[in-house]
């Protein structure tokens, strides 16, 4: 059992990193955690309602969920669990304990893709992930192919 951390920006394209993770660690079963970074909201309403978190739930569109399910079904025996988490930290030590709590074995990062800012409060957690001291693997997404449909198409998961 390996615990793999993969950052996500809720685009279907970024889910391709899961392919890469399975290619690399395919012999073991995997617990994959998709992490999205958010700046914590310090206002009273933000603390009470967790409004930014709600913003993110809007980002998890029907297509994104369908794409997650497609991947789950594709790697039914390899992927033991696929879950999505939000990361609210701002310091390196917080990141380290976040990763420690999830018993992280590896972090997968894209070599040829820049994560987009999904919502205004999104943060780029890639630098912190790199510095956290856990094994980091860079994978190519092979996104060179031609994009015909809009971003929310399942075909983005294909290697074309």
């Amino acid at each position: 059992m390996k615990n793999v951390i993969i950052p996500t920006d809720f685009s279907i394209k970024s889910l391709k990193l899961i392919h890469a993770a399975v290619d690399r660690f395919g012999e073991a079963t995997l617990n994959i955690t998709l992490v999205h970074g958010l700046t914590p909201d310090h206002s009273i309403s933000g603390l009470l309602m967790l409004t930014k978190r709600l913003d993110v739930s809007k980002l998890m569109t029907e297509e994104f969920n369908a794409a997650c399910e497609v991947i789950r079904n594709k790697y039914g025996t390899t992927i033991h669990r696929l879950k999505i988490e939000c990361y609210y930290g701002t310091s390196r030590s917080y990141m380290r304990s976040f990763l420690e709590a999830r018993q992280t074995d590896a972090i997968i990062l894209p070599a040829d893709y820049e994560f987009k800012k999904a919502v205004k409060a999104s943060t780029d957690i890639v630098p912190e992930l790199v510095k956290a001291g856990y094994p980091v693997f860079y994978e190519t997404l092979r996104t060179g192919g031609l994009q015909v449909a809009e971003d929310a198409s399942l075909s983005e998961l294909l290697h074309i």
Binding site: N65, A66, A67, E69, V70, R72, N73, K74, V148, S153, L154, S155, L157, L158, I160
Partner: peptide, 14 residues
């Protein structure tokens, strides 16, 4: 390509 979510089956022809 052929793919399946939990409720729907997808066929993509590109």
């Amino acid at each position: 390509a052929i793919a399946a979510s939990n409720t729907r089956l997808f066929l993509i022809i590109k």
